[in-house]
Design a binder for these strands. Structure first.
Lengths: 209, 209
DNA sequence: TGCCTAATGTAAGCAATGCTTACATTGAGC
DNA sequence: GCTCAATGTAAGCATTGCTTACATTAGGCA
């Protein structure tokens, strides 16, 4: 049910974001058109500019949404688990799972599409919040196992690995033919067994120096 | 010195590729304009289409060039080293170093800008060739140390880690202000000590199961 | 040497896009 | 019930990717 008039759309901002995700998913970011978006939403070509300063701002909003969602998922992903090692694996699985479930958001969060990260204050904050989940877990791990590693170094290493898995899974096509390709086989393996990689990494971290 | 006439440019294809790298480096892929490229090269707006079917084809050519260069660098990077563990670290350092030295190429090789990887046969082959370097090294490592890991799984894990490091180093700005941000600090740490991460990973791989 | 063809360049034009400026409509709060 | 800020529209500009039709040239072959 609508109001009697449809001059005002009512929820244009979020509708645009949702439609943008669909379009990007179907044809890639580089083909995203604000005009096409407006058309699909049933508004004029200039209406989107009331909600987003420009195209980049729309994409930044999606990336921010992604970081917020990721942070939330990582938190609830581990709260039912007390063992730190299992928490570690679970968080990694959740991270990669997020990238899989929301490839468009993930791509916007880390792709080079957004000129500079620090342009948007919101985006910056959301990203920091998400990272804090990982940092806290690693602090606990270092403390409990009495490890001699620098937490920042560990953070960079672990983040690299899970981000790398996510990125490869999204960017290296694996479903199709041409699986005689070695790199694709490796990614296909990743796809089936994210935990295996996380366990290797965990062993490297906790092995006594 | 030029020939008497400049109707034919002579080396337009490679000049376009070089200029494209400059432009992308300065303003990002999404702002790359074939017309601007043509202008800078001093040719008509349609001339580039004689060498590249479309914009994507130009980008794919750059990505292919990137994979070929990467493969070559990884090979010469390790050929003076006989110890397998040190070879492992050296290859990782070379990989990340390549991404650092050729950020535009790297971004095109793994960013989602190229719709589908398998579009170009050349690109596919070049990528496979590069990956083979890693695969061979891991095979040797598994054999020498008598490891029980699946080589494909190891490949996926190691590739994830180095690719993740490269990707984070390129996409998370670190030089500027706002270093009170934890994730940026972690990436800054990565930037200074790529080897540390590789050593942690190596330990995880070679630790007896 | 001189012709002929394929490779490579140009000119003009189409449909689409991002974004700006100026104006119209409306809902919410006093 | 008035007012004004929020949110929509209409028209237009500069730019872009790409197509079609035509021009120039280099290099192999007679």
């Amino acid at each position: 049910m609508k109001t009697k008039s449809n001059y005002h759309h009512g929820d244009l901002r979020s509708v645009l974001m949702a439609l943008a995700v669909e379009d990007i998913s179907a044809s890639g970011v580089e083909k995203l058109s604000l005009r096409a978006l407006a058309r699909r939403a049933g508004v004029s070509a200039t209406a989107p500019f009331r909600h987003f300063a420009d195209k980049q701002a729309l994409l930044a909003a999606l990336a921010t949404q992604g970081f917020e969602d990721l942070a939330q998922r990582m938190q609830i992903g581990i709260e039912n688990e007390s063992d730190l090692a299992r928490r570690f694996v679970q968080m990694g699985v959740t991270y990669v799972g997020f990238a899989r479930d929301f490839p468009v958001h993930y791509q916007l969060m880390f792709g080079a599409v957004l000129g500079d990260f620090s342009q948007s204050q919101d985006l910056q904050r959301a990203a920091d919040d998400a990272y804090r989940q990982l940092d806290q877990l690693l602090c606990q791990l270092v403390q409990e196992k009495n490890l001699s590693h620098d937490v920042k170094t560990l953070g960079g290493t672990v983040w690299s690995t899970v981000h790398g898995m996510a990125s490869l899974l999204l960017n290296v096509p694996v479903a199709e033919q041409a699986l005689d390709s070695q790199p694709r086989q490796a990614v296909a393996m990743l796809s089936q067994d994210v935990e295996a990689s996380l366990l290797i990494l965990l062993r490297g971290i906790t092995a006594s120096t």
